[in-house]
Amino acid sequence: MKQLATSVLLMATFFLSGCSTLRNVFLSESDAASAIREALILGVNNGSSVLGQKGAFGKDLILNAILPQDLQKVVRTLDQLGFTPQLNRFTTTLENATVETVAKSTPIFLSGIRQLTIRDAVTLVKNGGTSATDYLRRSVGDTLHRAVTPIMRNMLDQYNISQEWNKLVSPAKLLLGNKVELNLGLDNIMALLVVNQMFKKIEEQEVAVRTNAQARTTPLLRQVFGRDWSNVNVR
């Protein structure tokens, strides 16, 4: 009887151990989707931390966003007229508005990821690279942009951006004409800048999670992204 009980115990231990091993060699759609969300959320949090700091959006980045065609001519003319300090103050003010928009927009990104319906999550895990971020961009990128735009509009109004720009360029209008007018869709342009910069940070974090063990800060991230699934069955 004692031998029978011992045998049963050994068989049970072996069975449970086997189940644990089987779980480790299979990647479920549910685990893959949850891990992708964790990686994306980690990217948003890190992106918000970086982009929410003063200096995250430089002068060139901002001017290229709002004056993509005539940037050099406008800046050169303002420099020639001695308005470089005023231009620097303007871009600093616009950057401050942008940084605050990042902070206020972070919950929107997090909510979008948590509500994201992830199809073929196992494939996204296997594809590597920035496939999860690319999926996020395709799925809710436009929605995020639309949600961030009114936040940016509010911040631009608070900082009186249009008025500040008009004061800055009024001496240059005779030389540059309409080229110095701010785009009427400035809120849309700057919101797109915020969204694109955030996606870049999410991409960087995704690559880190996939390639760097230290970036896998949760058990699920270690389980899903800590091994090569290319030749492993899925369930």
Rank of each mutant, 00 (worst) to 15 (best):
K2T: 08
T6D: 07
S7F: 04
F15S: 03
L16W: 04
T21Q: 14
S28K: 06
D31K: 08
D31M: 10
A35D: 05
A35F: 00
E38G: 06
L40E: 05
L40F: 01
G43H: 09
G47K: 03
L51G: 10
G55I: 10
A56L: 09
K59I: 10
I62V: 15
A65F: 03
I66L: 13
L67R: 13
L67H: 11
D70G: 05
D70V: 12
K73A: 15
K73W: 11
V74R: 04
V75G: 06
R76K: 15
T77A: 02
L78M: 06
D79Q: 01
Q80M: 11
G82I: 06
G82P: 01
P85W: 05
N88V: 12
T92M: 07
T92V: 14
E95L: 01
T98S: 14
P107C: 00
P107V: 05
R114K: 12
T117G: 15
V125G: 06
G129Y: 01
S131G: 05
T133Y: 06
D134R: 09
R138G: 05
S139L: 09
V140G: 03
V148I: 08
V148D: 00
N154Q: 15
N160C: 10
I161Q: 08
N166Y: 07
L168M: 01
V169N: 01
P171H: 02
K173I: 06
V180N: 01
V180I: 09
N183S: 12
L184Q: 13
N188F: 13
L192G: 13
V195H: 03
Q197H: 11
E203Y: 08
E203D: 15
V207I: 15
V207Q: 12
R210V: 08
T211H: 07
A215P: 03
P219V: 03
L220H: 03
F225R: 06
N231Y: 03
